[in-house]
Design a protein around this nucleic acid. Structure first.
Lengths: 267, 267
DNA sequence: GCCGCCGCTGTGGTCCGACCACATGCTACA
DNA sequence: TGTAGCATGTGGTCGGACCACAGCGGCGGC
């Protein structure tokens, strides 16, 4: 017959159903752990496991103490959970880095295309619709910060990653933004790994700066095709430059004696 | 200075570092909870919280009992974790449904483009490279299954979702596949919600079938542009058709028939 | 009457011990 | 020799205990 779900799943489903029905909304407090446990007829440990999951997934934050700021509060900030997911999946070899890069390419191409189109649209219509024009000030500020002469490679590349994330944010698509944020930590890792193998960091960073400005210009000019092409070559170019020996489908390194880790399909 | 991380974070980091260093690989067993707790100097509850997180993220599965199949085993199946993340973020209003649809659009367009290009490539080169040709048999079988006359709307749409997922799998990009799998449950929900508002289900399902075949034909013909355009209009068309009244921020509220979307496990 | 200190209370964070259910595998008995 | 049943190891759950911390309010000093 129907198997009894584990206790922590009961808690998770209860919270999810409260979320869906609107009984819980962002900003609300969860019941205290002890009360929730009593209500659902489970132990406090089980409640804590469910809360921990939700916390890692970025759905709530917890704080000790008392008062309005304490307790478990619903906060839907998707970036954190996505980042944890990506990071761990890459670590567990569930996600090859090349796939992460390819996905980044696809998403960013779409982001800049959309931004350029929105920009073009805002130019053809009345200025009254200034709200339609994407907000690129954050990206511009990051670009300016990257012009600073006294940046280490790591600092520069961190700003680089933030710049790309800012573009995603400007596009307004929260799913894409969250995914990019999740990809970001992985991207930053490979980007910084690759930086050491560059012929000349000065040359490369200068080129990256130029390319960034070109992308932004294309967006502001409303030239979607150019923006897409520029951002694609920007990302692919750096990746190619830092991967001197491609290693086709293999990667995943060592230990050929392994049972090849089947990603067991549920079907 | 540095604040002490919570105990369960210590466990998580320990496992992640084992993953990164290769001490843990897919298929391996984690230490028993009690041993891990003793090793790391934390309580068993904290170990369990970390393990629970990893389980929801799709990094491992747990089983009771004894013997080789029991215990916590590393299995990197990204789909499950992504699905849980997407589902909960949508529930918490962190992800507007429209953004989910847009992201699906972008990813699927890229998938079919890539498939078509690979297909074209495999045609121009020797047939010896048959391995380069994407494997679309799964998609074809699903298409055939959808031709069956006696399908309910729900069954048809489930097959539909699986078809789109099969395309992603055929493309070989695991990040995209996992993201699509995560989007899938959300997509299925809105798709089935919308189905009731259709003028004629018979007409619509016939059209969907035709569009599916057209997409597949374009892929097999190696016509990337056509494939992209077809899949875009396919998805956007259905979404537009089922959303006569956009209903800005609202949505969901229901629960008829679906018991709050359990974390689909089982193997 | 006003202000500040201190303890009370509620909260999450952690640990511990206990017990259960279950899957194995071995042992003892027929 | 075969099988029934027990021993073992594992995750799953619970309840209790204690801690640290943040607010809040009462009490006392000024």
């Amino acid at each position: 017959m129907s198997i009894e779900p584990r206790a922590w799943e009961i808690v998770l489903q209860s919270i999810e159903s409260d979320l869906l029905s609107g009984r819980l909304r962002p900003g609300d407090h969860l019941q205290p752990e002890r009360a929730l446990a009593a209500d659902l007829g489970v132990g406090r440990s089980s409640v804590r496991e469910a809360i921990r999951v939700l916390e890692v997934l970025g759905l709530l934050r917890t704080a000790v103490g008392s008062g309005p700021s304490a307790g478990a509060i619903i906060v839907a900030l998707p970036g954190g959970g996505m980042a944890a997911l990506m990071r761990l999946q890459v670590a567990a070899q569930g996600f090859p880095v090349i796939d992460v890069v390819k996905t980044r390419l696809v998403l960013e191409a779409s982001v800049v295309t959309e931004l350029a189109e929105a920009s073009a649209l805002s130019q053809t219509t009345m200025d009254a619709n200034a709200s339609l024009r994407p907000d690129l000030t954050a990206a511009l500020q990051l670009l300016a910060a990257m012009d600073s002469r006294d940046l280490t490679e790591a600092e520069f590349l961190a700003l680089d990653a933030e710049f790309h994330l800012a573009l995603a944010e400007a596009s307004g698509n929260q799913v894409v933004t969250a995914t990019m944020a999740g990809l970001r930590s992985t991207i930053e890792a490979y980007v910084q790994d690759g930086a050491s193998s560059l012929a000349s960091w000065t040359d490369t960073s200068a080129r990256l700066r130029t390319e960034h400005r070109a992308v932004l210009s294309a967006i502001e000019a409303g030239d979607a095709e150019a923006a897409r092409s520029l951002v694609t070559s920007h990302i692919a170019g750096y990746y190619a430059e830092t991967q001197p020996n491609p290693q086709p489908t293999d990667q995943h390194t060592d230990a050929p004696g392994r049972p090849a880790a089947p990603t067991e399909r549920t079907a």
